[in-house]
Design a protein around this nucleic acid. Structure first.
Ligand SMILES: [Mn+2]
Ligand SMILES: [Mn+2]
Ligand SMILES: [Zn+2]
Ligand SMILES: [Zn+2]
Lengths: 147, 147
DNA sequence: TAATAAATGAGACTTATTCTCATTTATTGT
DNA sequence: ACAATAAATGAGAATAAGTCTCATTTATTA
């Protein structure tokens, strides 16, 4: 693990520093999309707040970090790994969990065709897309209030 | 216009007040998704900041306002009107413009099927979804830097 | 029109993110 | 391994979007 975070940094010609290693390892270890709050908890003060944000920006710049806003307005980040294929997200409106979702290849193909139509219609160059789904965990979620 | 904003409010049994009328008319007049900054500009100080946020929350509560975050992290709002059908959004990463996009019915049907699969797989109750597309205006945008 | 509840404005407050700057650390060439 | 140099860090100040408080104004209703 310590190896792979260093490797990731050197592969992207970014200098290898302790905060960067710590943040990368926290992200690798968690393995799922994580809010910045949770990430800070996980780091337990080992990285200064200002440095954490700087490191996250560094990772965004080298395109290995994806950041988005959840419906409750918390900032969520996730590593983009090599084996990590294109996917989308499912959000629980109650407990705030964010789940990675892969949609079918046929669906993605159809979406690509739609995007091509939109590009033409609006004379846009579309470089990325996102499908987000919102709802409620209906089962065995310890954090969801089972009203 | 003054009529329809009053009508909207009374139809939703919300009391008719000046700030609510002013905000609704600004949104109706603009007609497109608008950032809160732009909305404040358009209102030109006629509504206090605290009141603006309260009014926007009121409109969300009666389900006639949609709010989302653009890729540059500004908050965007848009009215949900009766004639306003289900649609998605296209964002210019350069000038920040947000454009309403309707995708084909076949696409939406296929997406619904994908969502059903996801519901089963994760035991979720999915209530809403969003498709977002990101890119660049390639033409005649006064605000886009034509690098 | 009077009584009552609801909404507003002004500004204080909160809090996520950015910024500053003195200090520490990583890198590179010797 | 070492010194020189540039880059990164930590601590905390600054910024700013959004919320909250409370005294005052306004809408509703009878
Ligand atoms: Mn993900
Ligand atoms: Mn829209
Ligand atoms: Zn849940
Ligand atoms: Zn543009």
């Amino acid at each position: 693990m310590s190896q792979s975070s260093r490797k990731i940094l050197s592969e992207h010609s970014v200098s290898i520093t302790n905060p960067r290693i710590l943040v990368l390892e926290a992200l690798l270890d968690f393995g799922n999309p994580i809010t910045i709050d949770e990430l800070q908890l996980k780091l337990g003060g080992s990285v200064a707040k200002s440095t954490l944000y700087r490191v996250l920006n560094d990772l965004k710049k080298i395109n290995i970090l994806n950041e988005f806003t959840s419906p409750d307005n918390s900032t969520v980040v996730e590593l983009i790994l090599e084996d990590h294929s294109h996917h989308h997200h499912l959000f629980c409106s109650d407990c705030g969990e964010v789940i990675d979702v892969e949609l079918s290849e046929e669906f993605e193909i159809m979406l690509t065709k739609e995007i091509q139509k939109v590009q033409k219609k609006f004379n846009f160059e579309i470089t990325d897309h996102r499908v987000e789904m919102f709802g409620l965990c209906t089962d065995e979620c310890a954090n969801c209030k089972k009203s």
